[in-house]
Structures are given as structure tokens and as C-alpha cells.
């Protein structure tokens, strides 16, 4: 597959994001309780849903990576953990900006906020650990295992508002959101998903190219490999 094709979801996502935010910031009615600041929802909720799903994608890649020992899965894990880290960091910033005018504080250590902060740190931890291991075989295992362990916090973060007393409101759903708000919100989510997929794809392509270069330096030149392979076949 041509790596450039990953720009397609990225560009589509950016266009959809612009439309969604025009809907959210200009067309949608004001939120009854929060007023204009309620419009941060159109950025925050899609970021949250996409961030959690990217955590799940990273988990699936990590399982595949450990099960198959194939570098492609490992690269996918790396790229999706990076995108999940980015999204969860954005999530905390958007949340803080929203919290100040509504709750009265930028941050508080309630279970939802705390578990999200731990999520950011543990995904970042996976990337730091990964960067310290140079042998690709060991790096694949370190990345896979730590990603699976970091992922445990995704469902905990998601359900934290159900399990414990929190300052953060309960999870949003179709029935808790006014119909006038819905299309901007769901289009915003689709946009974030497309952008995330595009970023994971582009990053994976770049990482794969780098891995091939690294291996190229240590492995035998391709031509010599082929000759050896032919000789082996001939000898058999």
C-alpha cells in the first residue's frame, strides 16, 4: 500500500473537524446551564472517545505483536500509543479549560481526572521504556507487555464516573444530549477518529521505514542474501 494514502483519512478528518466545529461553535444553540463555555463539549467529548479507542487499538496491536512476533504489529503499537498519549494529553488540557468556568477549578484529584492523568503518564512511560531498548526483539516484548498493562487503566478511566463519587459528570450518551447538539458532536467524533487513523498510519509508515534502515545497516546486503539463499536452495 502506498504510504501517502494515509493522508486521505487525515485530510478528510481535518475537513470534517472544521465542519463539526462550525456546527458546534456557530450553529448549535447555547447550552442551557453552562452557556457558551458548554461548547468545549464539541472538542472534549470526541477527544475522549477517540483517545480511549486509540488505547484499545494500542492494546489490540500489543496482543498481536506478542502473539505473532511480527514487527508490523509492534510498529502499530508504538504509533497508536503515541496518538493515544497525544489525545489524552489534549483531553486533560481541554478538560481543565472547561472545568475552571464550570466547576470553579482547573483541576481536582477526583477519580476520573486522576485515572486520566495516570493514563497519560503510563502511555508516556511505554514510549520512554521503548526508546531505551535498542534490540528490536526485546523492544517488541517490552512495548507489548507495558502497553497491555497501561491499557488496564482505559476501562477504569471510562467507568470511574460510575464506580466512584466524582466531580466529573457521568458519561454522556445519546439520551443525555439535546438533539440540536448531536450532529456536530458525532461528526466531531468521526473527524477525530479519521485524524487518529491517519496519524497512526503515517507514523507507522515512517517508523517502518526507519526500522528497515536500521536492519539494513546490520543485515547482509540484499544481493548477497539472495545469492546465499539460492546457494542454499541449490544445495538442498
Amino acid at each position: 500500500m502506498n504510504d501517502k494514502l494515509w493522508f486521505v483519512p487525515l485530510v478528510l478528518g481535518l475537513v470534517a473537524l472544521a465542519v463539526a466545529h462550525y456546527g458546534g461553535l456557530v450553529m448549535a444553540p447555547t447550552e442551557a446551564m453552562m452557556g457558551e463555555v458548554g461548547r468545549i463539549m464539541y472538542a472534549h467529548v470526541p477527544t475522549a472517545w477517540t483517545g480511549m479507542l486509540m488505547g484499545l487499538v494500542a492494546f489490540v496491536f500489543a496482543c498481536g505483536s506478542l502473539a505473532t512476533s511480527k514487527d508490523g504489529w509492534d510498529i502499530g503499537t508504538h504509533a497508536s500509543v503515541e496518538v493515544a498519549t497525544l489525545l489524552c494529553t489534549l483531553l486533560c488540557i481541554q478538560g481543565a479549560l472547561w472545568a475552571k468556568p464550570t466547576w470553579g477549578v482547573y483541576w481536582d484529584w477526583d477519580p476520573r481526572l486522576t485515572s486520566t492523568a495516570i493514563l497519560v503518564l503510563s502511555f508516556a512511560g511505554v514510549l520512554i521504556l521503548r526508546a531505551l531498548v535498542h534490540d528490536q526483539g526485546k523492544r517488541r516484548i517490552v512495548t507489548g507487555v507495558t502497553t497491555i498493562l497501561a491499557f488496564v487503566n482505559v476501562p477504569i478511566t471510562y467507568y470511574s464516573v460510575k464506580w466512584w463519587n466524582t466531580l466529573h459528570q457521568d458519561m454522556s450518551s445519546g439520551s443525555s444530549i439535546a438533539d440540536e447538539f448531536k450532529w456536530s458532536l458525532y461528526l466531531g467524533w468521526l473527524a477525530m477518529m479519521l485524524i487518529a487513523v491517519g496519524l497512526v498510519g503515517l507514523r507507522s509508515a515512517g517508523l517502518m521505514a526507519r526500522l528497515r534502515r536500521e536492519h539494513g545497516e546490520t543485515a547482509l546486503p540484499k544481493a548477497k542474501q539472495k545469492i546465499e539463499l539460492l546457494a542454499e536452495k541449490g544445495g538442498a
Binding site: 444553540p29 446551564m33 452557556g35 458548554g38 481536582d108 459528570q169 443525555s176
Partner: peptide, 12 residues
């Protein structure tokens, strides 16, 4: 003093 918001988003 912190104010909670519900998960209900209603149009004005």
C-alpha cells in the same frame, strides 16, 4: 466550593 455539572446537555 466546586460545582458539579450533570451529563445532561440541553439547549437554551
Amino acid at each position: 466550593l466546586l460545582v458539579k455539572h450533570s451529563n445532561e446537555y440541553k439547549a437554551a
